[in-house]
Simulated assay, not measured.
Amino acid sequence: MARRPLVMGNWKLNGSKAFTKQLVEGLKAELANVEGCDVAIAPPVMYLAEAEAALVGSKIALGSQNVDVNISGAFTGDISTEMLKDFGAKYIIIGHSERRTYHKESDEFVAKKFAALKEAGLIPVLCIGETEAENEAGKTQEVCARQIDAVLNTLGASAFNGAVIAYEPIWAIGTGKSATPAQAQAIHKFIRDHIAKQDQAVADQVILQYGGSVNDKNAAELFTQPDIDGALVGGASLKADAFSVIVKAAAKAKN
């Protein structure tokens, strides 16, 4: 089956009420006539209301950068799947290397978040990837397999139906370094093959995004690779023009 590309913007800890409205208006204008590529944005959770209102009438989907495993109760500071649904959020990033590093989130904990999202009918965007040291030690495949297996071994391959995996080499996030298209393709193929060992049909439809210094300059070449189905975009997603170039490149390359 033909996989429909997905380009998603991860705004990280950036923005304001005014910025959110302004950026969404810019994206709506730039992307009004773009077909054949799904688009989502993940502003800070504080600005989901502004983003939801600003996105009315557009095809751009709303996402979030994180979720917690509990639905309600005495969990101060947490955010539930039900609350995200209340704002129309659809694509939820989990396991981002910044969460794994700064908040000590384990593979097991990320898998629990994956399960919570599936149960709620939301789409997990599972981030995986290796550090520079792991990359240099030749452990890229081992690390990616371990991070995927946390979900595969607890929820089964079928959990990846309708899900997204974002391969983000940690050494390429926000550094300006990017994997070459060939390097990225090799890992994406490894990820798809790894899931295919359990279920080929699931592997064929799972959306694999590349992340890590994706910008308007390198996007087109990345998207020509057969197993790269889109991108999880950081810094470039904060500028309507740069982000739109990436979306248009995906739409063109995949159609």
Rank of each mutant, 00 (worst) to 15 (best):
L23Q: 13
A150T: 06
G235Q: 04
V34N: 01
Y167E: 05
E105D: 07
D149R: 09
Q209N: 02
G156V: 05
G230D: 06
E168A: 04
D107W: 06
A89P: 00
K85D: 02
G57N: 01
A32Y: 12
D199K: 08
Q209A: 06
E52V: 00
V39R: 13
D38I: 03
K239W: 03
A53R: 11
P5S: 10
T131P: 07
E134V: 05
A116N: 06
V7C: 04
K189W: 06
A159H: 12
V233A: 03
A150C: 02
K85Q: 12
K28C: 06
V45E: 08
E82K: 08
E25H: 12
G121M: 13
T154L: 13
E142R: 05
K217H: 07
A172S: 11
A49Y: 01
E52Q: 08
S80L: 01
I128Y: 06
I123W: 04
V206N: 09
M8T: 09
V56P: 02
F19C: 15
Q65E: 14
I207P: 10
S106L: 00
V247E: 03
A250R: 02
F19I: 15
E130Y: 08
E130H: 07
E35R: 09
E50G: 15
K17N: 12
A253P: 07
F19Y: 08
Q205L: 10
I165V: 10
K17I: 13
G26A: 10
G26R: 02
F243H: 05
F223W: 03
T154M: 08
P44F: 04
K21M: 04
L27V: 14
G36M: 00
I173T: 12
G36R: 04
G15M: 03
G235E: 07
T101M: 13
I170S: 03
Q205G: 10
H96W: 03
G230Q: 02
Y47D: 01
L117G: 01
L126N: 13
D193Y: 11
K112A: 04
D38Q: 05
L84D: 02
G162R: 02
G63S: 03
R100V: 12
A42L: 02
A231R: 03
M46H: 13
G63L: 02
R99C: 11
N218Y: 00
Y47C: 05
D149W: 02
A201R: 00
H96E: 13
H188P: 10
I195L: 09
A54D: 00
A179R: 10
V214F: 11
G57T: 10
L122K: 08
H103V: 15
A116M: 05
P169T: 03
K252D: 09
H188Y: 09
Y210S: 13
T20D: 11
P226L: 01
L208W: 05
E82A: 14
A242K: 07
A29M: 15
T154N: 09
E130D: 00
A42W: 01
L152R: 09
D68R: 11
G95H: 03
V233N: 07
G174L: 05
N153G: 15
I148G: 04
N255S: 10
K90D: 12
A242S: 05
S158V: 04
N14K: 15
F75T: 07
M46D: 13
P44Y: 11
I207Y: 12
I195K: 01
V34K: 00
F109R: 01
L31M: 11
V151R: 13
D38V: 10
F243N: 10
